[in-house]
């Protein structure tokens, strides 16, 4: 089976590696950073305006892929809720000795609450590991796009991108 966003709906490892929006391994080591998984030239640039530090550039034409400037990105995560494609995440590799923090956009009902233990899933919704919800940001400016932060085992910071919603609701 062919891989890649056009065939699976999931950006492949190659696509992510080649994407100017993905932070380098070195940058990930240094602290929290945005992880932009936007790999197609679509006409869109709210991420560029969203960043208060000028760490994302799209430029002209607006179909350019967003470029992440790792040196300017503070890992604040305000860009996450501003992306109409819900394609921006935040990764804090060394959140603790043993865990990473992953933040992702979440637009389902109900929202998890801080402290909840949730089953976390990858880009195809497959269970990866249990995580602990450390933040749920849903400011008015987000207009319904909540940003959920989960603490997960360090090994899966590149995989976890959502909550396994159905499994979670089954647990109540």
């Amino acid at each position: 089976m062919k891989s890649g966003i056009k065939y699976t709906g999931i950006p492949s490892e190659e696509e992510l590696r080649a994407s100017p929006g993905a932070p380098s391994r070195e940058r990930l080591e240094q602290g929290p950073v945005a992880f932009i998984e936007c790999v197609q030239d679509i006409p869109c640039n709210p991420c560029e305006e969203a960043c208060p530090f000028g760490a994302i550039t799209v430029g002209e034409p607006i179909t350019n892929l967003p470029e992440l400037h790792g040196d300017k990105c503070t890992g604040c995560g305000v860009c996450i809720a501003q992306c109409p494609g819900l394609a921006i995440f935040k990764v804090h590799l060394h959140y603790t000795e043993t865990t990473s923090l992953v933040e992702f956009p979440y637009e389902y009902y109900p929202l998890p609450r801080k402290g909840d233990r949730v089953p976390c899933g990858d880009r195809q919704g497959k269970y990866v590991a249990d995580g602990r919800v450390v933040s749920v940001k849903n400011a008015k400016a987000h207009d319904g796009t909540a940003v959920v932060g989960v603490e997960v085992p360090k090994a899966c910071y590149l995989e976890v991108r959502t909550i396994c919603r159905k499994e979670w609701s089954r647990h109540g």
Binding site: I5, K6, Y7, T8, G9, I10, P11, E37, C38, V39, Q40, I42, P84, G85, L86, A87, Y108, G121, D122, R123, Q124, G125, K126, R161, T162, C164, R165, K166
Partner: peptide, 23 residues
């Protein structure tokens, strides 16, 4: 068709929710 017609980011949202896409 043999590939997804719409934007990849829209496809990615439903894949994350566990929906299979059969081309």
């Amino acid at each position: 068709a043999t590939q997804i017609g719409g934007y990849g980011v829209h496809a990615a949202k439903i894949r994350r929710a566990g929906v299979p896409i059969h081309l």
